Simulated scan of single mutants.
Amino acid sequence: MKVVPRPTPDKWVRVTAGVGYVYAADPADGTYIVVNDADYDVRIPDAHATLRRLDLIVAQVHDAVDDAGTANDWDIVVVQGTPAQVPQMPGLPPASLPLAAVNVVPQAPSFPEKEIVDVREFLVASGGIMPVAGGSSRRRIQRSRCTGWTRRSCTSTTGTGGRPCSMTATGSRTGR
């Protein structure tokens, strides 16, 4: 779910198709899988007249149990920052996955690619290969070598609330 400018420059950005894993508001509840199966356009709120602002584009899950609401769905939303001379990143809402930060410049008619910063985190299955940014602009390959599983510390064999304790891969990563 990469955030890019729309082909026709305007106050909107486009979130491309993709899959994301969103941590639940309560860490004991695990993760949600969200699937964006087509491009989705999001409008960025108007800029301040003289000050810059940083906005976050996030995939946010709504769970009736965690939110004490009625919705059980997810959406791609803008978390609007506060205008300032030196703007700060807004806080991340619970149960949300950051996709991009957008630098909202005063009186700008659109958001060129240079104002959109990709903040996604990538996952790879054990033994898989993930491209990572290296010391230069070229890409490096990193491979996971999982050698086993280790139980994270918890107070019982079933964790809290009857849920199993989480497991963590052990092993190493190699850069090539």
Rank of each mutant, 00 (worst) to 15 (best):
V4F: 04
P5V: 00
T8A: 14
P9W: 11
K11N: 08
K11F: 03
W12M: 11
R14K: 07
R14C: 03
V15H: 06
V15R: 04
T16A: 09
A17V: 03
G18L: 05
V19G: 00
V19Y: 01
V19I: 13
G20H: 06
G20R: 12
Y21Q: 14
V22T: 11
V22N: 10
V22G: 09
Y23C: 13
Y23Q: 13
A24G: 14
A25Y: 08
A25E: 14
D26H: 09
D26Y: 06
A28N: 14
A28T: 14
A28M: 07
G30A: 01
G30Y: 02
G30R: 05
Y32P: 03
Y32H: 08
Y32V: 07
I33W: 02
I33E: 15
V34M: 06
V35T: 07
N36V: 12
N36K: 09
D37E: 10
D37R: 09
D39I: 07
D39W: 10
Y40D: 14
Y40S: 11
V42T: 00
V42E: 01
I44G: 06
D46R: 05
T50Y: 01
T50F: 02
T50M: 00
L51C: 07
L51G: 03
R52P: 08
R52K: 12
R53S: 13
R53M: 07
R53Q: 15
L54T: 13
L54G: 02
L56P: 01
V58E: 01
V58I: 07
A59F: 04
Q60A: 14
Q60N: 09
V65T: 13
D66I: 03
D66H: 11
D66A: 15
D66P: 01
D67A: 13
D67R: 06
D67C: 10
A68Y: 08
A68W: 11
G69M: 10
A71T: 08
N72A: 04
D73C: 14
D73N: 15
D73Y: 08
W74C: 03
W74G: 08
W74Q: 00
D75A: 14
I76D: 10
V77T: 13
V77L: 15
Q80G: 10
Q80Y: 05
G81N: 04
P83I: 06
A84D: 15
Q85E: 11
V86I: 15
Q88V: 08
Q88A: 12
M89L: 12
P90L: 01
P90H: 09
L92T: 11
L92R: 13
P93Y: 08
P94W: 00
P94H: 01
A95Y: 05
S96R: 10
L97N: 13
P98G: 04
P98R: 04
L99C: 01
A101G: 11
A101V: 15
V102N: 02
N103Y: 13
V104W: 11
V105D: 04
A108V: 00
A108Y: 02
A108G: 11
A108P: 05
P109A: 13
F111Q: 03
F111K: 00
E113I: 10
E113H: 02
E113W: 02
K114I: 08
E115R: 12
E115G: 03
E115M: 13
I116H: 00
I116C: 01
I116L: 02
V117A: 13
V117G: 05
D118A: 01
R120N: 10
R120Y: 04
F122T: 14
L123G: 07
V124C: 11
V124R: 15
A125S: 09
S126Q: 11
I129T: 14
M130F: 07
P131V: 04
V132T: 12
V132G: 04
A133Q: 14
A133W: 03
